[in-house]
Design a protein around this nucleic acid. Structure first.
Lengths: 190, 190
DNA sequence: CGTCTATTTGAATGTACTCAAAAGCGGTGG
DNA sequence: CCACCGCTTTTGAGTACATTCAAATAGACG
């Protein structure tokens, strides 16, 4: 699916809008392991994943890291705080597989929304939906045990386990890799 | 602060836009303990808190409840999932104090955004900022101990402890009221 | 094939929960 | 104005869930 198709699932674009949007897109290939955002640096772009898989994670001062989200084909991701407020990022974004992404730089993003309000609507919907997902995730985290959270993760993102090393799934779930391993062993016996 | 002022911090409104917006607002007084959203029902409106304090919480099938967010003066709240997708809500919203709120019904919300794109921009910004807050909260939850989370809560929302019974703060932090009590006792000794 | 990293396993430990009971606190009615 | 009721908060003991640390095993990649 192209990025235009993924947008047109939410809003209709005229030829001109689509053309302008395409003109500001930057396309980039990132190799597995490469970083698209680095902690301490300002995140200058918003990221759309065309293929492959990215993860955005927080690096705790104590050295541990904590996955905020994974992003596979047709997902958007970014350190929104850094992008929005133009402040140094607390997060890193890393390619978990060779990936193709589109980047929209903040300057272009701002101008796009200024010129073509249809993109205000698109991003309003994108953020609104994302907010719903985040609210669910918060509840998931506080209301369920690690094992329940893992079950939920598996059924919600069945394709993600192929890409993502277990230790990052553990990090996403808020547990240690050792404990996830023990949960998995226990589940095998069923 | 009026609701118009809180909007105009983000976008400029013409007389016409402001007038139309005001015309679709419903104002309501809710008494302490009253519910503005009930689980199982569709949430028909988006809520702006003018004064007082609300909380939105999730009711687990096992009977426990889990606070998603508090909302005091000039905050927006709602079960976005139910509002957006017109599905039965998994959440309840309750007044923690006598409060004055504005309600925007979904039908009016949709028409407002259709007519005056400036509100697309406003809500895009509102959701974008809220998303940043939610991302932080997720990281807070997985990367810190209960005690650290409580410290952070206190410094981030210093005024909220007046309104909110401890058991709800515990719920917000994802811990039991007993354990929060123990954390507080420990902190006293310092 | 060897090296590096990820995963598994186990034992000891710590953080947070459950359950039960006592203490505090606010509102209501006598 | 005080006594009582219901609800919140505190306290303690026992327990469960999840972590840490250390070591073994398995996988991935050059």
């Amino acid at each position: 699916m192209t990025i235009l198709q993924s947008i047109e699932k939410y809003v209709a674009l005229s030829k001109e809008e689509a053309g302008y949007f395409t003109s500001i897109l930057e396309t980039k290939i990132v190799k597995q392991g490469e970083l698209l955002e680095k902690p301490g640096e300002i995140t200058p772009y918003f990221i759309y994943v065309k293929s492959g898989c990215l993860m955005t994670y927080f690096i705790h001062p104590d050295g541990s890291d904590h996955v905020v989200q994974f992003a596979t084909s047709s997902w958007w991701t970014s350190d929104l705080a850094s992008f929005t407020k133009v402040t140094p990022s607390n997060y890193a974004t890393k390619a978990l597989a060779d990936s193709e992404v589109h980047l929209i730089y903040k300057k272009d993003f701002d101008e796009l929304l200024e010129r073509y309000p249809v993109f205000e609507k698109f991003f309003r919907l994108l953020f609104q939906n994302s907010l719903i997902t985040h609210q669910n995730r918060i509840i998931q985290t506080v209301a369920h045990t690690a094992e329940e959270r893992y079950d939920y993760f598996q059924q919600k993102y069945p394709t993600l386990e192929q890409f993502v090393p277990q230790k990052y799934i553990a990090s996403y779930l808020g547990i240690t890799p050792e404990f996830l391993s023990k949960i998995r062993r226990k589940k095998m016996g069923r």
